[in-house]
Write a protein that binds this DNA or RNA. Structure first.
Length: 596
RNA sequence: GGGCGCGUAGCAUAGUCCGGAUAAUGCACUGGCCUCCUAAGCCGGGGACCGCGGGUUCAAAUCCUGCCGCGCCCGCCA
């Protein structure tokens, strides 16, 4: 549709100038998509112009429509222009559109989402403290982050997925202390007494084992100041980058992190790099940041020698507008190390994107201001609201969690059951494969289809929903398209040869549903890119669902297999749609099976 | 107390950034379509004071403003 807009703009500007409207500089922003698709593709509301000229909008629009009839004849992409009320509606010529977009999509499906120059992008996401199994509360970050990674790759960007490992904080300190000081009997005893002693469904996974020590230590810590002191001492040493302490921390958290990464891997989420927080203490860059921040005009010192930036004038309000970056004892804080981390990240990419929970909004703003003070740019940030349980926010520490391993097991089991009722012809192995793919895809998609800033109340039936407007619907549409090709090959047809002539096809006389599919296909790249730029993956998910719906409508009354062989137009359309559905599925981590 | 986010049919959401045409989709409710490429599909019906009140505008779910409800944050924690 963008091409259509560009094609009409000059003609429209000329026509407007004829009737006395000279300022047409904002024409592009006035042109909009027609909501009711039967009315056309692109519309120009004429109310402002009409008012300016003191004329009736409908009459004015009709006059413009008349003046543009010659343009309809000269522009191959434009099929029709007419006035409806005060709107001037343009309709694209679908056969020209198909001629352009279908061969292009089939020739290079991987480039279907490219619409601009690629950039080198570093996306940091997940970065969860390695203190226990990966849980559903944390998963929105990882699933959203991984989706951005995938969508940007679809758009042609060079993306690096980065996990920031908090290897020196209090969480890891408590874990390390607990592993060293609490044996299994003690852990069992403490957790039983505290009432958070649920039996793990994954007793063999190290992250599920060690989280019990962590939880027990947190219980004990509440009324034993000695533990608090011991942990604090370890944390202090880690902040000085004491090698023995960091080594002990590493031994404590690495197996837990590995367990979390296994879970993430099952979800289809991988990382290109892991960066440890301690790195920026060790290489001295935190000290450099501290020195530079102290030079800031916003910097001031508290009575005990601690340093802060006064942010009252920088849009920070509340009880406390101070951003502390150095403690009274001279040591750094988490946020300070984050500044050093971001400075380093800027050496790795042209664009930075962070995925953060809504609880990090203030801190992210503080870090952004501080980055400005040391001469660095701020990253782009996507904030998401929490996934809550009926009992409130999930917490590893309090045992109020749904572990992702359990959710995936349950999702897979339920999906497998559904598949087995639909496909009675399949063996157990196939059922399991499909069930696993459907279960995982559904869990991901059910999170991605809602706006990041909107809170999610976790409910099993929602998280595991397999209904339409969901991952299985996309997967099913894809499987249908695959099935067509499979049947053609079974019949002995040469599908590749049939498609070789796609550039010469005549696309006139498309059915309504086929034309609808062509229009939808033609918008793939602009929908993808606008979704990325708005940082709302759910926008592209809506598009993808609409694409699948249009494909299913097309499928209903446009047979590819005909009594005489193959309808090549329909085959080309089906294949183009299949490639795009598959690409879109990739973007959301939905697994496009060939059969289900 | 202050800052930020959210509030759309019974439920779950889209649309809000950038104001436009009968507020879109799924579930649930309901009627139809498989001698024809997978019915996890397609076609139709009923169901909405777009949280509430003001304002701006030819036009407001969308912008401004005041309330109300829910959430997050306001550590020399991470």
């Amino acid at each position: 549709m963008r091409k259509l807009q560009q094609a009409i703009e000059p003609h429209l500007a000329a026509a407007l100038s004829e009737v006395g409207i000279d300022d047409t500089s904002n024409l592009a922003s006035l042109l909009q998509r027609v909501k009711e698709e039967s009315q056309g593709d692109v519309a120009l509301p004429c109310f402002t112009f009409a008012k300016h000229l003191g004329r009736a909008p409908a009459e004015f629009a009709a006059e413009l429509a008349d003046a543009l009839q010659a343009t309809v004849a000269s522009e191959s992409l434009l099929a029709e222009v007419h006035a409806v009320g005060g709107f001037l509606n343009f309709r694209a010529d679908v056969s020209t559109l198909a001629q352009e977009v279908i061969p292009q999509t089939l020739a290079d499906p991987a480039a279907a989402g490219h619409a601009r120059d690629p950039s080198a992008l570093l996306i940091e996401h997940t970065s969860a403290n390695p203190n226990g199994p990966f849980h559903v509360g944390r998963s929105r970050n990882a699933i959203l982050g991984d989706c951005f990674v995938r969508l940007h790759r679809l758009a042609g960007d060079e993306v690096r997925a980065e996990y920031y490992v908090d290897d020196m904080g209090k969480q890891v300190g408590i874990l390390a202390w607990a592993l060293e000081n609490l044996d299994d009997d003690r852990v069992n005893e403490v957790l039983a007494a505290a009432g958070i002693d649920e039996e793990s469904n994954h007793p063999d996974k190290v992250d599920h084992q060690r989280v019990r020590n962590y939880q027990a230590a947190n219980v004990l810590r509440d009324d034993d100041p000695g533990i608090e002191e011991a942990v604090s001492e370890m944390v202090r040493l880690s902040e000085e980058a004491d090698p023995d302490t960091l080594d002990a921390f590493g031994k404590a958290y690495q197996p837990v992190l590995d367990g979390m990464l296994d879970t993430l891997d099952r979800l289809g989420i991988q990382y290109d790099s892991f960066t440890k927080e301690s790195r920026f203490i060790i290489d001295g860059s935190v000290d450099v940041v501290l020195a530079e921040l102290r030079q800031s005009e916003l910097a001031a010192q508290a009575e005990n020698g601690a340093w802060y930036l006064e942010l009252a004038e920088r849009g920070v309000a509340g009880k406390n507008t101070r951003f502390y970056f150095q403690r009274g004892d001279g040591s750094s804080l988490y946020a300070t190390r984050d500044i050093a981390y971001h400075r380093w990240k800027w050496t790795q990419a042209d664009r930075l994107l962070n995925i953060l929970g809504e609880d990090h909004r203030l801190q992210s703003h503080q870090v952004a201001v501080a980055l400005g003070e040391v001469g660095e740019s701020s990253p782009e940030v996507v904030f998401y609201a929490f996934t809550k349980l009926p009992d409130g926010k999930m917490s590893t520490r309090r045992g109020n969690v749904v572990f992702m391993d359990d959710l995936l097991d349950e999702a897979t089991a339920r999906a497998t059951e559904v598949v087995s009722t639909i496909r009675t012809d399949l063996d157990d192995e196939s059922l399991t494969t499909i069930g696993e793919a459907v279960g995982i895809s559904s869990v991901r998609f059910n999170i991605l289809r809602v706006s990041p800033e909107k809170g999610i109340n976790f409910r099993w039936e929602d998280a595991l929903s397999l209904e339409a407007d969901s991952a299985p619907f996309l997967m099913y549409s894809h499987a249908r398209a695959c099935s067509i090709v499979r049947r053609l090959l079974d019949d002995g047809h040469d599908v590749e040869a049939a498609l070789a002539s796609v550039g010469d096809l005549d696309w006139s006389g498309l059915s309504e549903s086929a034309a609808g599919l062509v229009r939808r296909i033609s918008r793939f790249a602009e929908e993808l890119n606008s979704s990325i730029e708005n940082r709302r993956p759910n926008q592209f998910s809506s598009y993808l669902l609409a694409l699948a719906t249009d494909y299913n409508r097309f499928y209903r009354d446009n047979p590819v297999r005909t009594p005489d062989g193959i309808d090549v137009n329909n085959l080309a359309l089906s294949e183009a749609a299949r490639h795009l559905i598959s690409a879109g599925c990739y973007g959301f981590g939905v697994i496009p099976l060939e059969s289900m």
